[in-house]
């Protein structure tokens, strides 16, 4: 007995029922289960598809697919971090490094003026509003994709979730940031520290919320050969 097209559909459904949300992982597990079911049928042709499927599933252990999903998420986060680092490195090469230095010096000079506190406070608010707008945009896109039953790719989820979550984590910090407005100019050390912080934050936000999402399709095709299949 061999696995039919209909069985494959049932196996995809089975993986979804067992908390495998991502299509890339579903595909690998469906093929594994299908191979095992066919092997089980070779030994015992009289058992039903459901029985053979449950036998194959049991081999994944008491936690079912959970270990595989967790490990895959961990591996993909690692991949994302590597991608982030490779983009970040560009900012410390010519000609971008000149822009990085200009930002550092520019912010340092501004923080030393009497408007230092206001500039810091405004910068944080701008970051927050930006994350909020981009985050809401991505969250709506995800909702739309779900409604249209589009395939969910783990790496894509990581790319867009990163932006959505940052906005949420960042919000409570706004209370502390309001204190910045009461401050006038900063000392040399604090000006330098804030200049480094703001410059790094700009680079980070630019890479995670603009560059990587913009190049998402390229990275998804690199990660998943099956992306266009």
């Amino acid at each position: 007995m061999t696995i039919t097209e209909q069985h494959i559909e049932q196996l995809y459904k089975f993986t979804r029922q067992h908390y495998v949300e991502y299509y890339d992982l579903q595909t690998e597990l469906v093929d594994h289960m299908a191979n095992d079911i066919e092997a089980i049928w070779d030994e015992n042709p009289h058992i039903s598809f459901e029985e053979a499927r449950d036998k194959a599933f049991k081999k994944f252990g008491v936690f079912g697919f959970m270990d595989v999903v967790e490990a895959r998420e961990k591996a993909m986060h690692k991949k994302y971090f590597k991608l982030l680092l490779s983009y970040a490195k560009d900012w410390f090469r010519l000609p971008q490094v000149l822009l990085t230095i200009s930002l550092l010096l520019g912010f340092y000079t501004l923080f030393r003026t009497e408007l230092g506190g206001i500039i810091l406070g405004v910068s944080f608010i701008v970051f927050f509003v930006f994350y909020l707008v981009v985050g809401v945009h991505f969250a709506l896109k995800r909702k739309r994709d779900k409604k249209e039953n589009k395939k969910v790719w783990l790496f894509e989820q990581i790319i867009f979730s990163n932006v959505i979550w940052w906005g949420t984590i960042y919000a409570p910090q706004l209370i502390n940031i309001s204190k910045a407005f009461d401050t006038l100019s900063y000392s040399m050390i604090w000006s330098a520290l804030y200049a480094i912080l703001i410059t790094l934050a700009i680079i980070y936000i630019y890479i995670t919320a603009i560059i990587i999402p913009k190049n998402a399709q390229i990275h998804l095709k690199e990660t998943y050969p099956e992306y266009n299949m």
């Binding site: 690998e28 597990l29 594994h32 081999k59 994944f60 252990g61 936690f63 270990d67 595989v68 967790e70 490990a71 895959r72 961990k74 591996a75 993909m76 690692k78 991949k79």
Partner: peptide, 13 residues
């Protein structure tokens, strides 16, 4: 199976 795929995915990453 529970050990194989995590190992494969780690090697891939």
């Amino acid at each position: 199976e529970g050990a194989l795929y995590p190992a494969l995915h780690k090697l891939e990453a």
